[in-house]
């Protein structure tokens, strides 16, 4: 849930990167962290296992500039993708303003993507959100690899709502900022609508 501080003139929003294990959620945040002006970002926190798998979450605070005298701050989180960390995923979705679903485009990960979307839907419902209404962007990641599902097939399987979608190679930064800008814009538009 967004937090608007009239006293300090700040608008704070929470965006969660969701998706199956090893789809590139952390890589998205790492690329953003590595390619943002130092004044615009805070420290990136990764609560990971010894083998660098996300254990609880990654976190990156980011400023996106001012809008009518209000500083805009986005808190970016990732969830742990591995199936057995579902309790942690639920916690991280609390208070979410927008979700980016990172798809692993490899053919042999199709089922994992579908399961993860279903899991996202269920976990959002438990927190009182609806995947059909929340600001939502889909990113088709790993487009540089071989044995990929086509964008048409992925769209058909994963993007029933026809939300904005982006092709990406997060390791090289392709599509990373486009995805971030798109979700931030959707979050703002929704915020404005809901405060009316």
């Amino acid at each position: 849930m967004s937090f608007i501080n009239i006293a300090s003139r700040e608008i704070n929003c929470k965006i969660v990167y969701y998706g199956p294990g090893l789809c590139g959620k952390t890589t998205n945040l790492q690329y953003i962290y590595g390619h943002t002006n130092p004044d615009a970002k805070g420290k990136m926190i990764s609560l990971a296992t010894e083998t660098d798998r996300t254990l609880f979450f990654d976190f990156l605070p980011l400023s996106l500039g001012e809008i009518r005298g209000f500083k805009t701050r986005f808190h970016l989180y990732t969830v742990p993708g591995q199936v057995f960390y579902n309790a942690s995923r639920k916690l991280i979705l609390k208070g979410v303003d927008g979700v980016v679903f990172v798809v692993d485009s490899q053919i042999d990960r199709l089922e994992a993507n579908i399961e993860s979307v279903e899991n996202l839907k269920e976990n959002l419902n438990e927190q009182g959100y609806d995947l059909d209404r929340i600001p939502y962007i889909i990113q088709y990641n790993k487009r540089d690899l071989t044995h990929l599902a086509s964008i048409e097939e992925l769209h058909e399987l994963l993007n029933h709502r026809s939300v904005p979608e982006f092709e990406a190679v997060a390791t090289m930064g392709i599509g990373v900022f486009e995805t971030l800008k798109a979700i931030a814009k959707l979050v703002f538009l929704e915020l404005k609508k809901s405060h009316r």
Partner: peptide, 18 residues
Amino acid sequence: KSPLDEITDEDIENLFND
């Protein structure tokens, strides 16, 4: 009165135009 009342869709677009 929400402070967001004064923010237009154009303001939001402009934030992402750089």
